[in-house]
Nucleic acid binder design. Structure first.
Lengths: 209, 209
DNA sequence: TGCGTAATACTCGTCTGCGAGTACTCGTAG
DNA sequence: CTACGAGTACTCGCAGACGAGTATTACGCA
């Protein structure tokens, strides 16, 4: 029993807004969206209510009132509990202090890039590179726009994002250069294998590794 | 209906081994583990059979035989279908050609690092930095060891991993320097807020952003 | 003033993920 | 020759995630 009572990151997002003032679930989602947090963690409507219910079950939030405002279905307003505050801080501590256990999906793709054959591999990598450059550009523009509006610490995750996107772009560019310039060894064997299914002679050595 | 029929990455791993020769599920897991793929995607035993069943349901693999070897519970051996090959290649194409939609968890942590207060933030970041350095070191050692045994292309995902780990370490180090040297603006306001709950005067401007 | 459309605030049911258990077998130390 | 622990090869069942639907209200506009 070492895992977090509520594991969904959406739960963290909920805590992060409800820590300010009591709210009902839909409002939490609205606030999150309005602050652009939905860029970090896309909000799944289906999960929202499950997650809030779970937070309540474990005593991190509690229902405060059920407002019947007009004829709308009544909205239950939740407030964070002391245990919820503790959980929130602790969760952030964990996120900051430990490296992500699940590797990025791109890593898995790279480890199997062989099946694509050299030509397709190259064109897909070019596509990725384009997306990365675009993303970095967009983030930089957003940052420049927000800069005068709020302190730097409030935008630190954007700076991080830019740095990581640029780093990946740099790596992909370097890899592409090696593939296209012929600096990468084994390109002809790779192409031959992809086109004809023939394995080079010295294959048996490492196939059983 | 744009999402993958079988969404679990474990399904990709299964395809990647069953493409070589027919196998039964337990053997797939064993092969994956033996090749060290379990480092990339930790194999969940519970998911394995569900995933294989799903792959079968969608026609990506098919049962070939049920061997009753000795008195063991009979093992069903699966073989990849043509549709399975197509799916496999297409999946890899997607992984290589499009950037991961879900941002890393650390990003979420960073966006809420404020709640920790400056001192805890710094010590957690130091912890992370240590982990990153250690990870990079381990990966480099592993790479050096494997280098003579197999072609470079077969280890490309490790190179990627090292590059990304180093990039993150660099960024964290830079951020830490700014925090500790006092180069980051607003540190005293941050500490004051954390210790007393007092907000600086010019807060109202961006709280409603 | 009536109507279509957007926004609000959920509910429901399905499908998936996966931990924990189970049952059987084989090698081996006593 | 037998008891036992370490593999082998799964099965089960619950809890969680999420898409898609639903019902109500607010609002623009003709």
């Amino acid at each position: 029993m070492k895992r977090r009572k509520v594991g969904n990151l959406l739960g963290l997002a909920v805590l992060s807004v409800v820590v300010e003032r009591p709210m009902h679930p839909y409002e939490m989602a609205a606030v999150l969206k309005e602050r652009g947090k939905d860029a970090d963690l896309p909000i799944k409507w289906g999960s929202l209510y499950t997650v809030v219910a779970n937070l309540e079950k474990h005593g991190f939030v509690e229902a405060v009132e059920s407002v019947k405002d007009g004829g709308r279905p009544e909205r239950t307003v939740y407030r964070i509990t002391p245990a919820g505050r503790v959980e929130f801080e602790d969760w952030v501590r964990e996120l900051v202090g430990t490296v992500d256990p699940e590797p990025p999906r791109f890593r898995s793709g790279l480890s199997m890039i062989g099946v694509l054959g050299p030509d397709q591999a190259i064109s897909r990598l070019r596509e990725r590179l384009e997306q990365l450059d675009e993303r970095a550009g967009k983030q930089r523009a957003a940052l420049d726009q927000l800069r005068p509006l709020m302190p730097r610490m409030f935008l630190i995750e954007v700076e991080y994002d830019i740095a990581m996107t640029e780093a990946e772009a740099r790596w992909v560019r370097g890899f592409l250069d090696e593939l296209t310039s012929g600096a990468m060894p084994g390109m002809t064997a790779w192409r031959r294998w992809y086109e004809t299914g023939e394995l080079p002679d010295d294959f048996g050595e490492f196939v059983e590794k």
